[in-house]
Amino acid sequence: MIQFQYTRATAAKAALDAISRDKTAMFIAGGTNLVDLMKRGIVSPERLIDISRLPLTDITTEGKSLKIGSLALNSTVAENKTVQQKQPLLVQALNAGASAQIRNMATVGGNMLQRTRCHYFYDTALPCNKREPGSGCGALEGFNRMHAIFGFSEKCIAVHPSDMSVALVALDATVVVDGPKGQRRIPFIDFHRLPGDRPEIDTNLLPGELILGVEIPDNRFAKNVHYLKVRDRASYAFALVSVAAALQIEKKVIRDARLALGGVAHKPWRLSEAERALVGKPVSESTFREVAQLAMKGAKGFKYNEYKLKLTPNAIIQALKVASKLV
């Protein structure tokens, strides 16, 4: 880890000013990913602007939406009574992520911005276009068991590791940011990018922008949600595949649905077509099987992650069954 300058910001404006003056600077909040990356020499900011004490931690309801400050801790959000009541899917996803200690440190904004856990990204001795553009994708022909089956490019087949983001994309959240262009709102589904030719860029956040918070519109999903995370151990592991499922059910018929996947793409993977296919259908395993097949359109496996082509639809079916209380 190089020596760097450290500045603590006490107001969002000051943080934005500070970062606009120094291209080598980065924000730090929880530090749970950034400090790790700095130790391994994967990122080397010359200045850290500590935003962890900015007053962006509130969780409020405003009109028909829930607003969560970007610096609210993952554990604070998961333990919040309003969130538990209104957005249980988010709570489940948060609690499926990392460990209790990390959730006590990690912020909502930082969770969205965490980098991939691709083995090749994490080893500076191996090629990775995301870490070192032009060096090649180590995973493409390498050990790609954890990797993408949707939306990848030849440059990068890494997946986004966040659980929280899978729930947020399913729940139609909006990210509110501030920066050189002033405040703007980014639909969550557009927040993360696909790798394309520029895998080094994870999100559509512009340089110098600061996430202020996320907003989740009201919904009628509180009763029928499930976040299923399939992983190599029972806890504290990144997803092989995860599914965020939210259903609005009336008289055993699905009235509305939200469905998203984690661990399968460079971004949290929303399944809009599958959602539409669920609407109006009866709650039944056969409905879920059909929809799961639809969800897999365009999926492609690599040498070591072919299993995801089967595990993913299975996980979708299972998540829908649990959400709809079929099991």
């Binding site: 730090i28 929880g30 530090g31 400090v35 209790a100 200690q101």
Partner: peptide, 15 residues
């Protein structure tokens, strides 16, 4: 009073 991981915590941030 909250449990955190000290290895991912920069000391100066705990001032």
């Amino acid at each position: 009073g909250t449990r955190v991981l000290s290895c991912l915590t920069l000391a100066v941030m705990q001032d």
